[in-house]
Design a protein around this nucleic acid. Structure first.
Lengths: 336, 336
DNA sequence: AGGAGATGAGAAAAGGGTTTCTCAAATTTT
DNA sequence: AAAATTTGAGAAACCCTTTTCTCATCTCCT
């Protein structure tokens, strides 16, 4: 039960005094700059090490104009997408000594502004905006900021650097996998019409079918909500018809889960009678379906890593290709 | 395709010059300290506003010894627990102008040290340690740091401030709910023996049964893994016996999901024949079960908020009750 | 030996604020 | 009217590091 007093840290001044030199010399010794004898440099370093000296990053930043800090802004409260992206960013940047402020702004413009202001006040070197929909922007305009911004998994201005998974290629691979399994009557059960990813995946689905020489029909694309329930319903719809599919490509893993459960309830064999492929590789869902779900992984961690690298380059004033970067998806083959 | 140059920010110096006063006066005008005429103060403020002046938080921190920054350290890569906690912390602290560094350290001691050092270098005011198991510490010793530390949902030293959900009360409420539904043959299907929460929830389960005047038997507690599969298996075990339960309290929502699915497959009515209660209120699971799962919510966001508040008090040198704080859980009644 | 160049290290300014003094001018008191 | 306060605002020190100068001392060359 206490508010303890915490020891104040060792400063460069302390080190310099202990080593019997000026702080200028001490600074130079530790940064491997300036001119001095090897003995002096060694002695100062030894003293610093012994005293456990760690330079105050704030003071450093004040002169260097670099805080080695970036802000990550997200409206994905649930974190399904943000966390892998965050992990990638963090992993890619910690080697450069960069730390990440995570700010969840929901869809609240005031809150978003508060967070952005707080980040700018703290002199972040840059900002990464991320979200859960690639066709909706965050509730705040980041285009006129005094620091560079990279967009990942969210909509940004067209002249910005934006990283997105290559949904279309992912969808194509999913279909190709189904075709390779010998499936010929393939349908697509996906989310609501309003989502860009729904459009893109559906287009790629149709295109892949065509390339495979299979008939393409509008009826093969069923749109609903992003839920297990819709997966069930879709199976009901499909199986109330005469011609049942032998391959189902789902718009996300939850729908796939619903589809698989519904098929199993009907006694349809998976993957014996029907093969199912999901999208997202949300492991908590995909690994628990029976059988485990074959699905498309968006490699979000890698996407985060690249977003971090891109931001770093912008911060360093290097040139970076503007526009949309589509990063490859990977088909994860499991048992479905 | 460019590394743009970004406008440098307005400094106090700029404001002072524009207002025709010294920076000392400008500083005092904006902070509502010092002595000056109301006209001067007003003029300076107006100028600052017009110029869009925002003080450099780094410079402020250098003198104030407060960075208004805290570090959140977690080993919960998947974020199931960390994200709600993070959201609560952030929500509770942003009003005080505090931003949060999120660092995921997995179980890697080196990585953890790197992150902790980076945070300390950046002069965080304090650190919150969080994880996915209340009986395992993070892979780094935070007890001798120069800043206060609060533990949430992870093991810390006994003299530290540690916030945990009140698992026992949550479990009791779950059982009481089952009893109130008229259930008399209640069993507990939970996770592996090694977990402290398993022990605690099981103890509370037994105690609650006893209080309700129901027979308590060791056989009523089935331990397995934290998975849907184990939920299925447990139902198999239970239904291979003569006396089947009419109430099942599960150690987490995934197990509950497995139990519900298995029961439905057997044609057992939920909640007609058997009531099921889960633990965690992992909405993505709980809301998609059929019927939706009644479960115990650990109020992690509130836990995070309180962790933030506690840390702030420690930072301010206020006294804080050491030891373990058990925060209430809430039963969320849905359809099971 | 005298001057040029190299060497080692410190003084001082800068970075953007806060805060404690100091001090002249204005106001109040006697 | 002279002395004592109060008021308004600036000078300067400080927070911690970096970096550019400056300068005294050595070493080397002719």
């Amino acid at each position: 039960m206490a508010g303890a007093d915490f020891a104040s840290r060792v400063t460069l001044n302390d080190v310099a005094a202990a080593a019997g030199v000026s702080i200028a010399t001490a600074s130079k010794a530790l940064n491997d700059t300036g001119r001095m004898s090897v003995e002096t440099r060694g002695r100062i370093r030894r003293v610093a090490l012994e005293m456990g000296f760690r330079p105050n990053a704030l003071a450093k930043s004040l002169t260097s104009k670099r805080s080695f800090t970036v802000g990550l802004l997200t409206n994905d409260t649930y974190g399904r997408f943000t966390l892998p992206v965050m992990a990638g960013i963090s992993e890619g940047l910690i080697d450069h000594g960069v730390s990440v402020f995570l700010c969840t702004v929901e869809d609240n413009p005031e809150l978003a502004k508060i967070h952005v202001d707080a980040m700018l006040d703290k002199q972040v070197d840059g900002i990464i905006a991320t979200g859960k929909r690639i066709d909706k922007p965050l509730p705040v305009d980041l285009s006129k900021l005094s620091v560079p911004v990279v967009y990942a998994l969210t909509a940004g201005p067209s002249d910005a650097v934006t990283l997105l998974p290559d949904d279309q290629r992912g969808a194509r691979e999913a279909v190709q996998h189904l075709v390779a399994q010998g499936r010929r009557r393939i349908v697509h059960v996906t989310g609501p019409r309003g989502f860009r990813v729904v459009q893109e995946r559906a287009d790629a689905f149709a295109e892949a079918l065509e390339r495979a020489g299979l008939p393409v029909s509008d009826a093969a694309i069923l749109r609903g909500e992003w839920s297990e329930r819709w997966g069930h319903e879709a199976v009901e719809v499909l199986w109330s018809d005469d011609a049942q599919p032998d391959g189902i490509f789902c718009g996300n893993d939850q729908i796939a889960r619903g589809v698989i459960d519904a098929l199993r309830e009907r006694g349809v064999g998976i993957p014996g009678d029907v093969s199912v492929v999901g999208f997202d590789n949300w492991e908590i869902v995909a690994e628990q379906t029976r059988p485990p779900l074959t699905t498309v992984d968006m490699n979000l961690k890698e996407l985060g890593r690249q977003a971090g690298q891109a931001l770093l380059r912008l911060v360093n004033g290097e040139t970076v290709q503007r526009g949309i970067w589509k990063l490859p998806c990977t088909l994860v083959v499991r048992g479905s």
